[in-house]
C-alpha cells in the first residue's frame, strides 16, 4: 500500500486556496496536513464539525497516526468526485485492500479500520471490513487466532466446553 504525498502545512488554522477552503488536521503523533474541506468532509465526523462551525482551527485527529492519516487522505483524494475517470479505475485502485494475507497489509487495514471508524468514513469502513470478512471465510477458530494474532482468553475448562460445543460444527 502506498502512502499519500501530502504537503505539511506551515501554519495552523483554516486557510483558503482560491475559493477552496482548507482544513488543518493534526495526527496523534503531531504530523500536520492541509486538506480541502470538500475532500475531508467525506468523514461524517469532520463534516459535523464543519457544519457546526467547529473546524476553524487545527483539528486534532486523536488515535490516528500521521502514517495512517496520510493513507486516509489518499483515500479521500481518490474518492473525490471526478478524481478518477471511471468506476473501473477506482475499483482497481481499491483492490490493493482486497487481500490482507501479508502481515503488513493486515496492520494497515487494522489502522485504516480504526481511523475509518473514528472519523466515520463509510466508504473506507466498507472496503476494510470486506477485506476482513474475506479473510475470515473458510478459517477455523484456530486459524483465525493465528491470523489475527489473538491469544485465547478462555481458561482450560472453557476451552474444553468450546471443543464439546464444536460438535455442532458444520461440515460442508
Amino acid at each position: 500500500m502506498s502512502t499519500a504525498a501530502t504537503a505539511d502545512a506551515s501554519s495552523s488554522g483554516d486557510t483558503t486556496e482560491g475559493s477552496v477552503r482548507l482544513l488543518t488536521l493534526q495526527s496523534e503523533d503531531g504530523e500536520v496536513f492541509e486538506v480541502k474541506e470538500t475532500i475531508a468532509t467525506q468523514s461524517v465526523t469532520i463534516k459535523g464539525m464543519v457544519d457546526d462551525d467547529c473546524a476553524t482551527s487545527t483539528i486534532p485527529v486523536c488515535n490516528v497516526t500521521g502514517r495512517t492519516l496520510a493513507m486516509v487522505i489518499e483515500w479521500w483524494n481518490k474518492h473525490e468526485i471526478g478524481a478518477v475517470s471511471n468506476e473501473k479505475e477506482l475499483k482497481e485502485w481499491e483492490s490493493q485492500f482486497d487481500t490482507i494475507d501479508d502481515k503488513s497489509d493486515r496492520d494497515d487495514v487494522y489502522d485504516l479500520l480504526m481511523a475509518a471508524n473514528y472519523l466515520n468514513i463509510p466508504t473506507l469502513l466498507d472496503c476494510c471490513t470486506s477485506a476482513v470478512a474475506e479473510a475470515i471465510k473458510g478459517k477455523s477458530t484456530d486459524e483465525m487466532r493465528e491470523f489475527f494474532d489473538i491469544k485465547s482468553d478462555f481458561d482450560e475448562k472453557e476451552e474444553d466446553a468450546l471443543r464439546k460445543e464444536n460438535q455442532w460444527a458444520f461440515e460442508n
Binding site: 475470515i136 477458530t141 487466532r145 489473538i150 482468553d153 478462555f154
Partner: peptide, 8 residues
C-alpha cells in the same frame, strides 16, 4: 459461527 470461539 466460528468467530465465537476465538476470544471472549
Amino acid at each position: 459461527l466460528p468467530l465465537s470461539n476465538v476470544c471472549k
